[in-house]
Design a protein around this nucleic acid. Sequence first.
DNA 1: CCAGAACCGTACCGTACGGTACTTGTTGGA
DNA 2: TCCAACAAGTACCGTACGGTACGGTTCTGG
Lengths: 212, 212
Amino acid sequence: MSAELPEIPEFSPRQNAVLEQALKLLVEGGEKALTTSGLARAANCSKESLYKWFGDRDGLLAAMIAFQAAKVRTFERGAARLTVDLLRENLETFGRDLLEVLSGDVSLALNRLAIGQASREGSKLGRLLIEHGRRQIDRRAIGLMEAGRRAGLLRFTDADSAYHTLYGLVVSDLHVRMLLGEPGLKDNARQAARAVDAFLQLYGVAPDTEHA
Amino acid sequence: MSAELPEIPEFSPRQNAVLEQALKLLVEGGEKALTTSGLARAANCSKESLYKWFGDRDGLLAAMIAFQAAKVRTFERGAARLTVDLLRENLETFGRDLLEVLSGDVSLALNRLAIGQASREGSKLGRLLIEHGRRQIDRRAIGLMEAGRRAGLLRFTDADSAYHTLYGLVVSDLHVRMLLGEPGLKDNARQAARAVDAFLQLYGVAPDTEHA
DNA sequence: CCAGAACCGTACCGTACGGTACTTGTTGGA
DNA sequence: TCCAACAAGTACCGTACGGTACGGTTCTGG
C-alpha cells in the first residue's frame, strides 16, 4: 500500500501548455486567481476540454503538481572517489540547490496551494507534493550521506536522521517564512556553507585540525 | 513605519467568545468552513455585529490571529545561575515547547490560513502571524542564548544565528510537513534532546568528556 | 469527399459567499 | 415610563465560481 509508482500520466503537448499557463496564473495571483474560466481564457482552450482532460478542479491541481515535478528532475552527481573537500563541495552544492528550489516562485505557489488545501480532504495534494517533489531530492541527499560514510568521511548510524539534520541546518525556518510572504535570503551560498560547516562538525569523522 | 506596537486591541468578552468559536470552526474545517454566516450561526450572533466589530472578513482573520497570540503568552524562565545541566534542561524544554506549539491544532490552522492568503495582498496576515506569534518565542530563545554565553557555557558571535541553528536542529522540515497534512512526531522530547545534543556540540564551550 | 472526433468560444445554471438593510427584542439610564 | 443604543435573526442583493450544454470550426483518417 505504498510507493506503487503509478506511471507518470504523461500529458499531451497541448495539455502541457495549458498546465504551464495554469502554473503561471497560480504564481501570479495565488489560488483564487486560478479559476477554470480564467485558465480557459488565458490558455485559449475551452472549459469543456479542461474537464475532459483533468476531471475536475482538484484533478487539475494534481496534474499541475505532477507536471511541475516532472520538469524539475534532479541530476545525480557522479560519486567519483570522494575526498573531504569533494564531499564538502557536494554538500554545499546540495544546500544551494535546496534553497534555490524552495525559494522558487512555482515551488512556493504550489506549496501554498497544497497547504491551503490541507485542512480538508485528507491533504491529498500535500501527500502528492511530498511524494513527487521531495523524493528525488531526498534520495540525492541520502546518496551523498552514504557515499560519505563509505568513503570514511562521515560517521552516523541513521542516514535519514543525518540528512534531516543537514536539512534543518540549511533551511531552518526559512521555508515557512517564505511561504508566509517574507523575502528569501540574499546569499544562499553563504547559508549553505555555514550549514555544511556545522554539519561536518557534527558528522565529519576527521576532526578539524584548525579550531581558532 | 515599523514596529509601532499598536496596543493589543483588547476585545470584549463577547467578542472573545466569538473569536474562540471562529478558531474552532477554522480548526475543524479549514478556511472554507469559516464563513461569516456560519460563524454567526455557530456563535449565536448576527452578521451585522461581526461587521461592526471586525470591519470585514480580513479584519476578522487578523483579530483571530491577535486573539490567539494573546492567549499563548510564553513564560520567561527565571535564569537563575546557569549550570551546564541547567542550560541543557532549559534548551530541551524550549525545544519541546516549540514543537508543542508548532504542532498545535490552532497554530497549524492559522499558519495554513496565512500561507494560503500570502500570495495576494502583500501577505498582511503572514506578517501579522510572524510578528505576534514568533516574537515572544524568539525573545525567550535569544535570552537563553545570551544567558548561556554570560555563564561561559556557550560560545558564539551572533545570538540570532545560533538561535536559528537551534531552531533548524529542532524543527527541520517538520513544520512544513505538518502544514501539508502529515502527522507530527510521536516523541517531541526525544527530538528536542537530540537537537540540543547537536547544538551543544556546536556551540557548547565545555567539550563533552564522554564521546562513546 | 465525407464522417467522426476533438476542440474552441460562449452561454447558461445552480449555488454559495461577502456584505447590507430591516425588524424585533432587550437592556440600561434619565 | 420612555427613549436610545445595541444586538439577534432574517431576508435580501450582487457577484463569482464550478460545472454543463451547445453550436460552430478545424483536424484526421478512410
